[in-house]
Design a binder for these strands. Sequence first.
DNA 1: CTACATTTCCGTACGATGTACGAGAATAGA
DNA 2: TCTATTCTCGTACATCGTACGGAAATGTAG
Lengths: 238, 238
Amino acid sequence: MPRDGGAGAPGVDPQQLWLTPVQPRRGRRPAYSREAITAAAVTLADTEGLEAVTMRKVAARVGAGVMSLYSYAPDKETLLNLMVDHVSGELPTANTLTGDWRADLKVIAHLQRALMLRHPWLPAALSTRRVPGPNTLAFLEHALAALRPTGLDGTAKLEIFAQLTAFVAGHVAHEIAQAAASQAPDRAAVEARYLAAVAADGRHPELAEVLSAPGRPLTPEATFTRFLNRLIDGLDTG
Amino acid sequence: MPRDGGAGAPGVDPQQLWLTPVQPRRGRRPAYSREAITAAAVTLADTEGLEAVTMRKVAARVGAGVMSLYSYAPDKETLLNLMVDHVSGELPTANTLTGDWRADLKVIAHLQRALMLRHPWLPAALSTRRVPGPNTLAFLEHALAALRPTGLDGTAKLEIFAQLTAFVAGHVAHEIAQAAASQAPDRAAVEARYLAAVAADGRHPELAEVLSAPGRPLTPEATFTRFLNRLIDGLDTG
DNA sequence: CTACATTTCCGTACGATGTACGAGAATAGA
DNA sequence: TCTATTCTCGTACATCGTACGGAAATGTAG
């Protein structure tokens, strides 16, 4: 194996993956790079979905043999972690904090949502990731700085960040699923008919009423903002 | 195929799966049942994890040939949906509503959390499920009844329930991951060392402080309750 | 009872996947 | 030039979901 090591899931030391600088150059020179491989995997996931990210397809896109990938990542799980950290690099961490931690946190959540909408596979991939990479850690650092005015202890800050991320991921996953349903009208119609049939059986009066009085459909953006504000405004520093 | 039809993911009509009563008995009598197969898959997931749920292992546990399963569920995705709805049957929906919708919602969330702790694969499986089965719908009906005093419109109620479920799933997934980390002290130690190394590089002062002042560790239960209360108390009926 | 239609059971087989293995090629230092 | 090191990647294998189709069991029609 070249100068990486491995990381993420199984029995691999994260230090060896994320913070090995550059090892002494010996032997054959690498023909590809972890960066290029990760980027190829990301574009593959962006365009064809996460399930299209197979070692063979990634290798084909890079122009490498399948097994060559294993010189840059010890297994697929690690490659997924690399992908997550790769796109996390798109998150800006410039010092734009206002000192109003609630407002700052809302901006952070909106940044996360935008990232996840740009990479719809991200919510699903997040649930498996183990060890945060440098980009993820940079953003975490940013979020912790935003939370500084709360005066909360470390554990509490970390928990808030984890919950916020999980909330955003959950919401975006839901958003994406609904958007996909709109794009497949047949399936949506079938589901609607099914729910209508259930509601018509008389044993689901609340469901029946809900379906008959849906209310005005809001934009996903508005719904997100509303829930986000509720969640964050509900936080206190006690 | 026997008297099911299919459901859930791809191009299968949910009506045909969930609400077909019993078809006229003709031909060979089924040797197994959808119930038994689903139950076997659930215990398999409970004991060995979701990734251990393969058609072959489920069939072996039932005592059937592998392909016999396809007489009861058209594909694995459907079997996963059946599993989800199966365990959702453990959720009580007896009329225990108090009329205080916030309190009722909190009880509902605690029920969901308990269910997910009993079936740790549930949060992961939920992210893929498409069409709710009868047990899921019964619980949804229960939740909608709890939300009745809010006077919100249908869409809003459904969104609150979806968000609540996503929140619980996210939290429990995090809980489970942390519990697993505690059970593998080697890996946890490696991760801790990695984070310490990152914190020591001088470019992550907030992380360094957080790691040095972690605060008192709360029970997962307490953390869950705290976040839940914040979320629900933050909801309003405007 | 005999045919036949229907439904279930399941052995075999196929394509796809992740990845272990190891032979060969390229490079750096001796 | 020799040797140690590192990367490349073809082959091979276990495992997965599941398509196919014949055998077996059951109901109905004659």
